[in-house]
């Protein structure tokens, strides 16, 4: 077999594709923003040459598509140059979203694991609950998000909790499905061995089923953490745009601040990547401690 090489198999292909995307982005910046500049020139009573038009398309106040460097300038400006406590700081908004995500994610993970344990140990629960767990995901819960927020607000629960509940609902599903599979992954021989040891159900669970389910748990946690961030962002949309990444998106779309939207979008992507990477690191750590080879 060929030796895997980081440069040849990772850096070069991914780098090429990224560069191509970046180049494509710049082309689209010119194409999409040019009509506005031509309009301006026509209004001033003249025409505008391509070489004049080119730099102008990249520095518009409210471009149709902001150029990458504009987005990164905005990102830099709102993360580094602003105090973290300032309402204009993207770090502040990210933290609001992140705290709701983390709370919802932990509740969803715990709920998912508990449901999975119930489903594996009780046949009536398996038969009656499992189809509904699956059906619950075909319901576009994100559509219910505004109502959950408004209703909980009316009861007097506001702030973090409603958003976290939406994240919980979204993230429990992958955990349930993954954990049911994982807790059932020990084979009959292994279960029989536990039986010959006269192991109690609790011992079978803690010493066989639980460790065997770890790879499944972390795979579904990765999906769950990404989706709970989506839940938190969407949960911020109907709150009247107070704070958070979702609020930044909404405010940006109301006032036509495209650069702000794109900056919030990139920040959300960065947060999502960070969360998935953290879960990935925890995954390899746990597997290593359990003696798995990487």
């Amino acid at each position: 077999m060929e030796q895997a090489s980081f440069l040849r198999d990772r850096l070069l292909p991914i780098g090429t594709v990224l560069l191509a995307l970046l180049a494509l982005w710049y082309v689209f910046v010119v194409v999409l923003n040019a009509p506005f500049e031509r309009d301006q020139a026509a209004r001033a009573g003249g025409t505008i040459g391509f070489m004049e038009l080119l730099p102008k398309t990249m520095a518009q106040e409210r471009p149709v598509l902001p150029a990458p460097h504009q987005v990164f300038a905005e990102l830099w400006d709102t993360t580094v140059n602003k105090a973290i406590t300032s309402k204009r700081s993207l770090v502040y908004h990210s933290w609001i979203t992140l705290s709701a995500t983390l709370l919802g994610f932990s509740m969803g993970a715990v709920l998912g694991v508990l449901l999975a344990i119930g489903i594996v140990h009780n046949r009536a629960m398996d038969r009656s609950l499992m189809p509904w767990v699956i059906a619950s995901q075909t319901i576009p819960i994100l559509a219910i998000a505004p109502m959950i927020i408004v209703v909980l607000n009316a009861v007097g629960i506001s702030g973090l909790m409603p958003k976290a509940l939406i994240s919980t609902y979204l993230s429990f599903f992958p955990v349930v499905v993954g954990m049911v599979k994982g807790l059932r992954s020990p084979e009959q021989i292994q279960l029989d061995l536990m039986h010959t040891y006269n192991a109690s159900p609790a011992q079978t669970f803690w010493k066989l089923r639980w460790p065997a389910s770890m790879p499944y748990l972390f795979t579904s946690l990765k999906v769950a953490v990404a989706i709970s961030l989506v839940g938190a962002i969407v949960g911020e949309l109907p709150t009247g745009a107070v704070a958070g990444l979702g609020a930044r998106l909404l405010a940006g779309s109301y006032y036509g601040q495209t650069v702000q939207i794109w900056a919030a979008l990139f920040m959300a992507a960065a947060v999502a990547a960070l969360l998935v990477i953290i879960v990935g690191i925890a995954h390899t750590r746990v597997l290593k401690r359990m003696g798995a080879r990487t």
Partner: peptide
């Protein structure tokens, strides 16, 4: 080049492009 990017994008809150 495209697969890792595709996997990455699947984990992103793509819904955020809606306003754009």
């Amino acid at each position: 080049g495209l697969l890792p990017l595709g996997n990455f994008v699947s984990a992103l809150p793509v819904i955020g492009v809606a306003p754009i």
